[in-house]
Design a protein around this nucleic acid. Structure first.
Length: 136
RNA sequence: UGUGCAAGCCGUCUUAUCGCUGUUUUACUGUAAUGGUAAGAGAGAGGAAAGUCCGGACAUCAUAGAGCGCUGUACUUCCUAACGGGAAGGGGGGCAAGUUUCAAGAUUUGUUUCACAGAAAGUGCCACAGAAAAGAUACCACCAGCUCGCCUCGGCGGGAAGGAAAGGGUGAAAAGGUGGGGUAAGAGCCCACCGUCUCGGUGGUGACAACGGGAGCAAGGUAAACCUUACAGGAUGAAAAAUCAAAUAGGUUCCGCCUUUUGUUCAAUCAAAAAUAGUGCUGCUCGCACUAAUGCGGAAUGGGUAGAUUGAUGGAGCCAACGGGUGACUGCUGGCCUAGAUAAAUGAUAAGAGUCCCGCCACGGCGGGUUACAGAACCCGGCUUACAGGCUUGCACUUUUU
RNA sequence: GCACUCGUAGUUCAACUGGAUAGAAUAUCAGAUUUCGGCUCUGAGGGUUGGAGGUUCGAAUCCUUUCGAGUGCA
C-alpha cells in the first residue's frame, strides 16, 4: 500500500529537505489558482512512491506571524481532509508540491477547502497531460 | 454608590469528532546512523513569546604584562551573576498655596519633573539685531571745568579733549541683585541684606547639610561640540560549537600487475633493438606517426557532503510558611517539575457556557453583536512598545443615609 | 536568528560644521501667446522634514524612543 488512506498528515508527507525545496523553486512547474500558486515536480519511481507537500505564506503579504500560522494551518487542514481522492487518481511517482498563498487577506475555511479541492483536480490534469506528451 | 489617578495581579471555559509534536510503558519491525508501526498513560505558547535597546550564561578563536587608541557609562549609597536595570537617599528646576521683607529675596507645605561628573585644563561656536557677544564697548542720553556764539546776565545752543559704566534701545544672553549712602555725573567706591567664592571644625558610610570666619566679586552660555577625569569593556554569536557519517568524486599510504632480448645499475636505474596492444592516416593490407607507471586493479586511512545526534530545556527555576532589611532584595525550611519543535507541532469543525455592548418588553427573559494585543526557535535578568475586559489595595472627589 | 542602511512638496532630488522664509526640476492650477490645442513665457498653491519626547537662545541636522521601507550574512 503506497499511500496512507487515513486522514493523517505525518512527517512522511511533509516536504522537509532544503535541497528539494530549492530544486522545486528553481525548476518546478507551476500554475495559479486563486488564492494559491502551486509549484510541483515529479520523478518516476519504481516502488517507493511518495507525495511530499509544503505550505507557505509570504511574509510580504502578512506581516504578523500569527496570521501566517493561521492561514497555513487552514490550508494544511483542508489538504489533510481531502487528499484521499487525490491519492486514488495518482500514478506511482515521487511528487513534490508547494502551495503558496497569494491572496492579500484571510479567507474562511470553507472557501479554502473548496479551492484546495479544485487545485488538486487541476494538478491531476496537469500531470496527465505531461505523461501523455512524454510518452508521445 | 459612582468617577478619576497610582501600584500589583488575571487575561476565557466545557463537550464531541477528525488530526499534529515530544515524554513514557508494552509488543512487532528496521537502518551505515537517527528510527518506524500499533495500543495504553500523561504533557503541549506569552504577559508581553514582540522590538532587539542593554546585561549575563554558554561556545569557539585570540591572548606574557602594561600603555595608547576605540566604544560605552556618569549625584551618592545599596541590590544583583551582571547591567545603560532597580531601591532608598541627596540636590536642582517648574506649578500652586501660605509666612516674612521697603525691595531683592528667603522660607514652609503639597504636587510634578530632571541622561544630575567637569565650563576655575585647553580648543571651537554664539546667526540676525545691537555701540559692544567675552578680561568688551561708547550710538543716544548724563557730567563739573575749558572754549565759541547769542542774549533779557543768568541761562540757552554748539565744539574739542576727557570722566563714567548707572539710564535708553537690541538680543536667548550685556559682565552680581535690591535698598541706602556717596559723587560733577557715576561706579562694590562704601554700608546692610541676599547671592557667589573660599577657609574651618561639626553631623552624616556618602551625595550633602546647617553653623561660624574671611574675600568686594575675579568665574556668560554650550560637553545630547571637540575634549578632560573616573569606571567598565578581547573579538565573534546557536547560521557559535562538538560528535557519528551512506553514496559519488578526488587526496594520502601500502600491495599487486607493469612484453622479450642485450648491455648497464643498489634498483624497471638508464640506453638500444625487436615484438605486442591502443589511437590516427586508409575501403582493407603493408607501411608511417604517436602513446604505454602522470597507468590499471585492490586494500587501508584522514578530511568531509546529504543525513543524523549533541548543544537544547532541572534552572541565577516556581510556589508557600517563618526570619533579616525603610526598600530593591535576601536567608532558611518544605513542596513542585511546568512546551521542546527544526521549512518548524500546540490545529480544524460543530454545539454549549461565561464576559461586555445594543435593542425589545410583561423586569425576567428573548434576539443580535463582541470576545483584545499577539505565536516559543539555545536559555536567563531587565528596559521599551501593543492590549477587549476583569479583580485587589491605596489616595482624591462625589451621591445617599445615620 | 543576527548585523546594517534609509525616511524631506503628488514624484525625483538639494539644503555646508545647528542659524531662521526648507530650495530646484517635474507634475497641478491660473494668466499671456494661438482661430483652437501643444510648445513657450509669467505667476500661484502645495511640507507639522515618518511619529513622540528631550538638549539648545534656536533642530531637517544632535540624543533617546517608536513606526515604516530596504539590504546583507548559510
Amino acid at each position: 500500500m503506497p499511500y496512507s488512506l487515513k486522514a493523517t498528515f505525518t512527517k512522511e508527507e511533509r516536504l522537509t529537505s532544503k535541497t528539494i525545496i530549492k530544486e522545486l523553486f528553481d525548476k518546478g512547474s507551476s500554475f495559479a489558482l486563486y488564492p494559491f500558486k502551486i509549484l510541483y515536480t515529479t520523478k518516476a519511481a519504481a516502488e517507493a512512491s511518495s507525495v511530499k507537500v509544503i505550505f507557505t505564506v509570504p511574509k510580504r503579504a502578512f506581516k504578523k506571524a500569527v496570521d501566517r500560522n493561521f492561514i497555513r494551518r487552514r490550508m494544511r487542514e483542508a489538504y489533510r481532509l481531502n487528499k484521499q481522492s487525490f491519492y486514488s487518481q495518482l500514478l506511482p511517482q515521487n511528487l513534490s508540491i508547494c502551495f503558496i498563498y497569494i491572496a492579500k487577506e484571510k479567507n474562511e475555511y470553507n472557501f479554502v477547502e473548496k479551492k484546495i479541492k479544485l487545485a488538486l483536480q487541476k494538478l491531476i490534469l496537469e500531470l496527465a497531460k505531461n505523461n501523455t506528451t512524454e510518452t508521445v
